[in-house]
Design a protein around this nucleic acid. Sequence first.
DNA 1: GATGAATGAGTGTTCATTCAT
DNA 2: GATGAATGAACACTCATTCAT
Lengths: 202, 202, 202, 202
Amino acid sequence: MNTRDKIMDVALNMFSERGYEAVSIRDICGEVGIKESTLYYHFKNKKDILDSLIEKFRSHIDGLLTHVDEITEMPPQKKGKKHDDISLKMVDSYMIDSYLFDPFCNLMLRLMMIEQFHNEELRVLYEKTLFTDPYEIQMSVFKKLATTGVFPEKEIEWIVKEIHSYMTMLTFKYLLNGELTKERKKAYQKEVHDFMTRRFIA
Amino acid sequence: MNTRDKIMDVALNMFSERGYEAVSIRDICGEVGIKESTLYYHFKNKKDILDSLIEKFRSHIDGLLTHVDEITEMPPQKKGKKHDDISLKMVDSYMIDSYLFDPFCNLMLRLMMIEQFHNEELRVLYEKTLFTDPYEIQMSVFKKLATTGVFPEKEIEWIVKEIHSYMTMLTFKYLLNGELTKERKKAYQKEVHDFMTRRFIA
Amino acid sequence: MNTRDKIMDVALNMFSERGYEAVSIRDICGEVGIKESTLYYHFKNKKDILDSLIEKFRSHIDGLLTHVDEITEMPPQKKGKKHDDISLKMVDSYMIDSYLFDPFCNLMLRLMMIEQFHNEELRVLYEKTLFTDPYEIQMSVFKKLATTGVFPEKEIEWIVKEIHSYMTMLTFKYLLNGELTKERKKAYQKEVHDFMTRRFIA
Amino acid sequence: MNTRDKIMDVALNMFSERGYEAVSIRDICGEVGIKESTLYYHFKNKKDILDSLIEKFRSHIDGLLTHVDEITEMPPQKKGKKHDDISLKMVDSYMIDSYLFDPFCNLMLRLMMIEQFHNEELRVLYEKTLFTDPYEIQMSVFKKLATTGVFPEKEIEWIVKEIHSYMTMLTFKYLLNGELTKERKKAYQKEVHDFMTRRFIA
DNA sequence: GATGAATGAGTGTTCATTCAT
DNA sequence: GATGAATGAACACTCATTCAT
């Protein structure tokens, strides 16, 4: 990892734990192992580090959304196929691994959680990535499933709301609370699985 | 309001928006209208302000929990009475008004959200007040309702999980996001009402 | 002890250990057990405490000198009497007990030692009480002894210089160094005794 | 002189006059001609300046002691040579010029005198450099002289005690009292010379 | 790419002191 | 006699940043 990336990495770890303002250039440089003056070769100023992190997060998210779009716009599976095949796999595997469980994304979510109350740009991004986008993704997935006749059209809205609220709550409870340990990840996955099983299988 | 209370009030407003570390003693005193040295007559240091706020919050919460206990331990209503009488009123009126919508509590929740990642004391309090306590309160309410025969015992767990996750998600979405405006409160109440109506009435 | 005396007592203890400037009104009041504002009922300001201590010391010293004068101006003892009768007793008992070993005087000497480098008033007092006065007292004692024929007049100067330098060195080494413990007092007394024995007896 | 050395120089001058605590970083920087923040580039905090001074003093003293050892371990002069040749020259010239009269050492001794009452590290150093070391140096010098037969072995202890106490008293009287002026140095040297002359010549 | 040296503004905190009660 | 509440000035120290090398 080159110096610039190391700075961003260290900065994100610190920002997401203590907040942007509470972290000093000294703190970052001390951890990276460079002098403070060196940091200014790589970044214009402190704000520039944060902006670069946000930019990186945005393109990461754009990649995810593009990927999800490709999946949901694929021609529908044959009728009668088990409903969870596509939807649950997508939700479970893709979004969880590359988004909620991804270290970079997870730290960015924490940072947004911390900074949202006095940074409008981050507040909007926070609302979008934690509430709006996941809801819309679920909706497009279930709408597609509806075309296969698995669910009646008019029930979709509430089904999605139920799933979305459950997963959102679990996200805050397990993934945006304390350190992101293996135990918390497993607890999250277990609760998601139990919910899905009861709701759609049992 | 005396000087000490004014300091706590101003400090909480600032801490909950920008985080404890990012707020300076100068900021607080400027807003309160006292000299910095005066603040140190009322509080022994910056941390002492935070500790006093936490202490105040704890006793506030203790009051709420005691009140809830009194309600749920009242002798059960006559059979057949509409289930929402006691439960929804309690949930809607009491917990919402005196907790989520209460300005002091709301700001404390925001502060806890911000500080939880590097303050273990606040992390524990955060988990308790946003996840553990609400779930347990709902459980005791619904267990009581179950004794009146309104709900079958074995369904209670999932009903409560459903309600709890829905309300938790709404709390993060509307009450712990941006400024706590009347519009957001109304949006929150409407979504709670819609959910309750669909789930228990329709 | 009344409040005023308690303040002076505590102040002297602290001044003599950490220096006048390094001791705060807060420190003193904390130890005395009064509020800072109360101190200003008893003393005009911080400097006033120091001035009062100096004044008290001056009159203490005046008392000592008067006492010594009375002794040295008493009619001479009969010829042939052992020379140490009057001189050593005086030196040993009186000056040591009421001056060097006296807690108040000892602390004042320490205070003067600390403050002499930037307080001309205390520097003069320091020089007088540690170098000039003791030398002159010894001189008047030995001059009196000379009249009894015990010492030849012309040897007196060097005898006194010898005694004075020895006792001064011991004072700095044992009484103005570390805490004034019983051990240090005893070590001081032993060395004085050994010196006197060797010089005048052996 | 570079900035770091200038800071140490100014700090020592101020510390030795007013005491460590009574001197502010502002005072030092004002005299050196730098901003306060600059000082923290060179020293990690105020204590660090003091520690650096102590360290410098220690190595200075180590140098002196090594030098003295070399002299006293030189093969003895031929018998009958005037006793003061080596000893008095050494005492007079070397220890006085490079220790008591040396500006850095003199200021350090004053600093130690001031700080000894509440700084155990400095108290120990103070006792060593003003009482223990000089006594031992004199002892090794006179023991060497004794081998040449100038002094009887059994008289050495008291001779050294006499010299040591006399020079110690003079040090406190002339060199550690008021400003270290040429007049005081001369007065000190004259009294040393008079004492030596009377004691060993006359 | 990186650093040594510097800075002005700001940090939390303590200082001696005042004054109405 | 003593205190609660306040203050302006000073305290040691950290901040993000600059710039010549």
